[in-house]
């Protein structure tokens, strides 16, 4: 490896990381705005999430007397996991420095690491809500993780690789014929992303109703900068999942070479696709009603089955291509 080749990759990696950090709250604000609009409420300002983050960072965190050091470390760790996840996903370019270090399975592992830490942090104070949220989060986690892996397996059986960069390159450059397996995988992926990001119908990010909350129950004890980091991490997770969906199913326009022109096109296309994706997410959330917690196994079980079906459909129908 020579340094000249590494430098632009490094620059692209940093650019992508900071783009994700900067844009993630915007996506959350955009989804919240559309949700309000579709539900007939006055939309909050688009930049409200930034304002909230700044406010929270400035505040003094209140920490329970029996909070351990794990409780204080967890927000930083969760934030950096999500930032790395957003950096691994080939959002703008597939020529990334970090690409060989982590493939699709490692990405799932990174999400799981963050989930384990947020669940442990939820259990740390020892309140009823914290452990309730932790157990529900782990329930959704163990159902969603296999489904997500099967979606990646579909993509990697098609492209012969689990490296995200190679998957995106293959899928972006294929001759145009429709893969039925990818359609199945796409539906499964959408269901998994809804569950993983705590969206209606699985969880509701806007509620503190004890019967239904999952994510909010775990982070009830957090305040100040810790809460800011966790909120930002949640935005980053939504951003990373949206970018993953785009990279797997609508990869057209992701830069394969590192030039300013290609990157500019990639950024423009990406913003457009994300805006559309955010609108669709708000639409799904508006059109569906929140499920009982014990309906989620059925919801995610069908996502898993669809993803398995996707692999089988590929092996049965598309294997010879």
């Amino acid at each position: 490896m020579d340094i000249d080749a590494l430098l632009p990759q490094f620059a692209a990696q940093l650019f992508e990381l900071f783009a994700a950090l900067a844009l993630a709250p915007l996506l959350t604000g955009w989804v919240n705005q559309w949700r309000a609009r579709l539900q007939g409420r006055t939309p909050p300002p688009l930049l409200l999430p930034y304002h909230t983050l700044m406010k929270l960072f400035g505040k003094e965190p209140l920490l329970a007397h029996n909070a351990s050091s794990l409780f204080r470390v967890a927000p930083y760790l969760i934030f950096s996991c999500m930032a790395l996840a957003a950096a691994i996903v080939p959002t703008l370019s597939s020529e990334l420095l970090f690409a060989p270090a982590a493939d699709a399975i490692a990405l799932v592992g990174l999400f799981a690491l963050a989930r384990v830490f947020i669940a442990l942090a939820g259990m740390d104070i020892g309140t009823a809500f914290g452990s309730l949220g932790a157990r529900r989060e782990m329930l959704i986690g163990f159902l969603a993780e296999p489904a997500l892996l099967m979606v990646f397996f579909t993509a990697s059986v098609i492209s012969g690789s689990t490296s995200l960069a190679t998957i995106v390159d293959t899928l972006a450059h294929r001759e145009f014929h429709i893969y039925p397996s990818l359609a199945f995988a796409g539906v499964a992926f959408t269901m998994v992303s809804i569950a993983e990001n705590g969206r209606v119908p699985v969880d509701n990010p806007a509620t503190h109703l004890e019967l239904t909350m999952i994510h909010e129950a775990m982070i009830l004890e957090y305040s100040g900068r810790h809460l800011a980091l966790i909120e930002w991490a949640a935005s980053l997770k939504l951003f990373a999942y949206s970018c993953l969906g785009i990279a797997l199913f609508f990869p057209f326009g992701i830069a394969q070479t590192l030039g300013p022109g290609a990157l500019a096109i990639a950024v423009a296309l990406m913003v457009g696709k994300l805006a559309l994706g955010g609108f669709l997410l708000a639409l799904i959330e508006t059109l569906s009603a929140k499920m009982r917690v014990f309906r989620t196994p059925e919801f995610l079980g069908s996502a898993f089955l669809l993803a398995v079906l996707a692999v089988l459909v590929h092996l049965l129908l598309e294997g010879s291509r």
Partner: peptide, 9 residues
């Protein structure tokens, strides 16, 4: 800065 308080009940 940081403040130790009782658990929010």
């Amino acid at each position: 800065r940081l403040r130790r308080v009782d658990t929010w009940d």
